[in-house]
Design a protein around this nucleic acid. Structure first.
Lengths: 219, 219
DNA sequence: AAGATCCGAAACTCAAGAGTATCGTATATG
DNA sequence: CATATACGATACTCTTGAGTTTCGGATCTT
C-alpha cells in the first residue's frame, strides 16, 4: 500500500535502504512523500487559494519551516505534489477481446475513487491553470494524460482488430468518459458511479462506433 | 429547470425609460448593471480568489464604497452578478425539422462566445462551488441549466416526432456538447469552435441516437 | 439658488497568510 | 558520550485585500 520513493524530483527509482556515509548527515528528506500527500489532500479539500502552508504542515505533522527548507514557495510545492502524485497503473491494459469488455474492465472501484480525487484536485487548481502554464502542464501530465492515453490505446486496438471502423473519431470518443465524469462531478455536482459509466459506454460510446443501437431511419 | 429569479434584485437589465443621456447620474442604483458586468469580467479573468473589490470598482469606474453601499460583501456581489447575468435567448428554439438541423442551428457565433465566457466564469468559481451552496445554485441556475434545458427540449421534440427512438438516454446525450466543450476549454485548454461542435454532433450524438453511422459488425 | 443626496476617490483599520528566523530537541554517527 | 544536523514548534515581519470612513464635488429636487 505504500510504494513511495520520490526524494529529489522523481527519476529516483532506486530505493536502497542504506544511506551514503556523508559526514554525519542524517536522514534525507524522508518526510517528503507525506508532505506532498498532505498538500494534495488539502488542495483537494480547500482549493489552491484556500489552502495555507500551515494547513499542509499541520496535516503532515511537520513544521512550516520544514516545508520551506525543501520547497521555495507554495506554488513550487503544489507543482511538485502534482508531479509526484501516486498513479493507478494504466500500463497493463485489460484485454477482454472486445472493446466494450475492455472499457468496462477499466471501471474498478480504485479507479473510480482515483478519478474522483483527481477531479477534486483539478477543481482546486482550475482558477490557477489560466495564469500558471507550469501548473497547467503538470496537471495535464499527471492527471489528464495517463487516463486519456489508456482509453485511446483501447480504441486503437479495437480498430487494429477490425472491430470498429477505422474512421472513428478516437480523439473525441476516448474523451467522452472523462469529460462526462468531470462535468458530472465538477459542474452537476453529482457522484460518478459504476452504473453511470456503464450507461455512458452502452448509451453513447458503443452506439457512436457502430456497435450499439440497431440503426434505423435517417432524420 | 425553470428560470432564475433568485433574490430580489435584477430587473435593472431592462431600460425603463429614456432619461438624461450622458450627463445623468440618477439617484437610483443605475450603475448596478455596469458594476455587475465588471464583476463578471474580472471574475472570468482572474477567478474568484484572485479578484479584488478594487479591481471591480476600477473596471466599473466606480468607487469601492459604492459597491459596499449596494452589496454587503464580495460574495453577495458575485452571487448577484451571476444571477443577473445576461442570457442568450433560448426561449425560441430553432425548428428545422430534423434533430441534426436543430442542434446545428444552436451553434451560432454569439452562442459560442457566450458559452466560452460562461465557462471562464465557471472556472473562476470552481473551487468555491464545493464550499458555498448558494453560489453553486446560482451558477447552476444562470449558467448550466438554461442551455441544458434547451438541448433537452430539442431531443424530446425529436422523440415526439418519432425521429429518434424513445428509449434514448436524453439526459446524458443532451449533456454531451456542454460536457465536451467544458472539458476542452477548462481542462484541455483548447478553443471550442464550430467545427468541433459539429464533429461532436455528427461523430457522437447522431450515431448514438441511431441516425449516424451505418451499423455494422458486432464486436 | 439652496438644500438634500448620491457618488468617486482615497485614507484608514483589521485580519490572514506567505515567508523568515530562532530555539530546543531528537537522533544517527563516531 | 560528543557532535553535527535535521526536525517541530513558534514567534516574527511584511504584504495584501476586505470592509469602513471621510470628504469634496456633482446632480436632482424644490
Amino acid at each position: 500500500m505504500t510504494q513511495l520513493d520520490i526524494t529529489g524530483h522523481l527519476d529516483a527509482t532506486e530505493e536502497t535502504t542504506e544511506q551514503s556515509p556523508k559526514l554525519g548527515r542524517k536522514r534525507d528528506h524522508t518526510r517528503d512523500p507525506e508532505i506532498l500527500d498532505a498538500a494534495l489532500e488539502v488542495l483537494a479539500e480547500t482549493g489552491y487559494d484556500g489552502m495555507t502552508i500551515d494547513m499542509v504542515a499541520a496535516r503532515a505533522k511537520a513544521g512550516k519551516a520544514t516545508l520551506y527548507r525543501r520547497w521555495p514557495s507554495k506554488g513550487e510545492l503544489i507543482i511538485d505534489a502534482i508531479a509526484c502524485m501516486k498513479q493507478v497503473d494504466y500500463s497493463r491494459l485489460p484485454d477482454t477481446g472486445s472493446l466494450r469488455g475492455d472499457l468496462i474492465a477499466m471501471i474498478k472501484p480504485p479507479s473510480i475513487k482515483d478519478g474522483q480525487r483527481k477531479l477534486q484536485i483539478m477543481a482546486g487548481l482550475m482558477s490557477m491553470l489560466s495564469h500558471d502554464p507550469g501548473l497547467a502542464d503538470a496537471a495535464n501530465a499527471a492527471i489528464i494524460e495517463p487516463r486519456a492515453a489508456a482509453t485511446r490505446a483501447l480504441m486503437q486496438r479495437a480498430i487494429d482488430r477490425g472491430q470498429i471502423p477505422a474512421d472513428c473519431e478516437i480523439e473525441v470518443l476516448s474523451q467522452i468518459s472523462a469529460a462526462m465524469a468531470a462535468y458530472r462531478v465538477l459542474i452537476l455536482r453529482k457522484p460518478v458511479d459504476r452504473d453511470f459509466l456503464i450507461s455512458l459506454i452502452d448509451g453513447v460510446v458503443m452506439p457512436a462506433v457502430g456497435l450499439g443501437r440497431p440503426n434505423g431511419q435517417t432524420g
